[in-house]
Amino acid sequence: MSADLTDPRPHRPLLGMSLRLLGVVCVSIMFIAGRTADARGVHIFETLFYRQALAVPVVLGWIAMTTGLGSIRVRRIGAHATRMVVGVTGMALNFLSYILLPPAEAVTIGFTMPIFGTILSATILKEKTGIHRWGAVLVGFLGVLVTQRPGAGALFSLGVVVAIAAAFMTACVSLILRRLSRTEDPGTIVFWFTFLSLPPLGLGALLYGGAHDPVTWGLLALIGISGGVAQICLTGALRWAPVSVVLPMDYSSILWIALFGLLIGQGWPQAATWIGAALITASGLYIAWREHLHGRQPPSA
Rank of each mutant, 00 (worst) to 15 (best):
M1W: 02
L5G: 02
T6G: 15
P10G: 02
P10Y: 00
H11Y: 01
H11L: 12
P13N: 01
M17N: 11
S18Y: 05
A33H: 03
R35W: 09
V42S: 12
F45W: 03
E46Y: 10
L48Q: 09
F49V: 06
Q52F: 03
A53F: 12
A53G: 04
L60K: 09
W62E: 01
M65E: 06
T66N: 13
T67A: 15
V74C: 14
T82I: 06
V85N: 06
M91C: 12
A92Y: 11
F95D: 08
S97F: 11
I99F: 09
L100G: 04
I109Y: 00
F111P: 10
T112R: 03
F116T: 06
I119W: 03
A122D: 03
I124Y: 00
I124C: 06
L125I: 02
E127F: 05
R133K: 04
W134Q: 00
L138Q: 01
V139Q: 01
F141V: 13
G143C: 00
V144E: 07
L145N: 00
L145Q: 00
P150L: 07
A152E: 13
A154Q: 08
L158K: 00
V161A: 14
A166F: 12
M169A: 15
V173K: 11
V173I: 14
R178K: 14
R178I: 11
R182L: 10
T183F: 15
D185G: 00
I189M: 14
V190N: 14
T194Y: 01
S197Y: 03
P199C: 10
P199F: 11
L201M: 05
L203M: 10
G204H: 09
G204N: 05
G204W: 02
L207W: 05
Y208F: 14
H212N: 05
H212E: 13
P214H: 00
L219D: 06
L222A: 15
I223L: 01
G224N: 08
S226Q: 08
S226L: 05
G228N: 09
Q231N: 14
L238Q: 15
R239E: 13
A241F: 03
V243Y: 02
V245F: 02
P248E: 13
Y251E: 05
L259S: 15
F260C: 09
L262E: 08
L262M: 10
G265N: 11
A272V: 09
T273G: 11
W274P: 11
A277K: 11
A278E: 05
L279K: 07
T281M: 10
A288Y: 13
L293I: 06
G295P: 14
G295M: 05
P298R: 03
S300R: 15
